[in-house]
Deep mutational scan, measured.
Amino acid sequence: MQRVNMIMAESPGLITICLLGYLLSAECTVFLDHENANKILNRPKRYNSGKLEEFVQGNLERECMEEKCSFEEAREVFENTERTTEFWKQYVDGDQCESNPCLNGGSCKDDINSYECWCPFGFEGKNCELDVTCNIKNGRCEQFCKNSADNKVVCSCTEGYRLAENQKSCEPAVPFPCGRVSVSQTSKLTRAETVFPDVDYVNSTEAETILDNITQSTQSFNDFTRVVGGEDAKPGQFPWQVVLNGKVDAFCGGSIVNEKWIVTAAHCVETGVKITVVAGEHNIEETEHTEQKRNVIRIIPHHNYNAAINKYNHDIALLELDEPLVLNSYVTPICIADKEYTNIFLKFGSGYVSGWGRVFHKGRSALVLQYLRVPLVDRATCLRSTKFTIYNNMFCAGFHEGGRDSCQGDSGGPHVTEVEGTSFLTGIISWGEECAMKGKYGIYTKVSRYVNWIKEKTKLT
Rank of each mutant, 00 (worst) to 15 (best):
228 V>I: 13
194 T>M: 13
290 T>S: 11
456 E>S: 13
341 Y>L: 05
373 R>K: 15
456 E>N: 13
415 H>L: 03
27 E>V: 04
318 L>C: 03
450 Y>E: 01
333 P>G: 03
111 D>V: 06
446 K>L: 03
190 T>L: 07
438 K>W: 11
84 T>K: 10
386 T>D: 04
100 N>Y: 08
163 L>M: 05
401 E>L: 14
331 V>T: 06
250 A>Y: 06
209 T>Y: 11
432 G>K: 12
274 K>F: 05
141 C>Y: 00
216 Q>E: 10
417 T>E: 00
343 N>K: 06
30 V>L: 14
45 K>P: 14
80 N>L: 05
307 A>S: 10
361 H>C: 05
249 D>V: 07
454 I>K: 00
315 D>L: 00
213 N>G: 13
157 C>A: 00
99 S>E: 07
411 S>T: 13
427 G>H: 01
302 H>F: 07
198 D>C: 05
24 L>I: 07
360 F>V: 10
331 V>L: 02
3 R>E: 06
59 N>F: 04
47 Y>R: 06
385 S>H: 15
355 G>K: 13
223 D>M: 11
87 F>Y: 15
84 T>F: 04
71 F>D: 15
104 N>P: 00
73 E>G: 15
299 I>K: 09
428 I>R: 00
135 N>Q: 12
359 V>E: 06
355 G>E: 04
223 D>N: 10
191 R>H: 07
405 D>I: 15
245 N>S: 10
143 Q>C: 00
286 E>F: 10
258 N>G: 03
265 A>H: 02
307 A>W: 09
117 C>M: 00
188 K>S: 13
413 G>Y: 15
245 N>Y: 12
26 A>E: 02
230 G>D: 05
314 H>T: 02
161 Y>S: 00
262 I>C: 03
308 A>E: 13
300 I>F: 06
296 V>K: 02
18 C>G: 05
57 Q>W: 04
439 G>F: 04
55 F>D: 09
427 G>F: 00
419 V>C: 04
437 M>Q: 13
409 G>V: 07
190 T>Q: 11
384 R>C: 03
363 G>H: 13
441 Y>G: 02
280 G>K: 02
401 E>A: 15
423 S>F: 14
401 E>N: 10
355 G>A: 14
366 A>I: 09
144 F>V: 02
400 H>L: 10
415 H>Q: 00
62 R>L: 04
318 L>V: 08
267 H>R: 06
46 R>N: 09
415 H>W: 02
220 S>G: 10
251 F>P: 06
52 L>Y: 08
416 V>P: 00
150 D>S: 10
416 V>K: 01
161 Y>T: 00
349 G>S: 08
171 E>Q: 11
379 R>T: 13
293 K>I: 06
362 K>V: 05
261 W>T: 00
207 A>C: 05
181 V>D: 05
275 I>H: 05
178 C>D: 01
112 I>G: 08
242 V>S: 00
452 N>W: 05
173 A>N: 08
379 R>P: 14
437 M>P: 07
452 N>M: 07
302 H>E: 02
77 V>A: 11
243 V>E: 02
182 S>F: 08
313 N>E: 09
419 V>Y: 12
231 E>A: 12
272 G>M: 08
199 V>K: 12
441 Y>L: 12
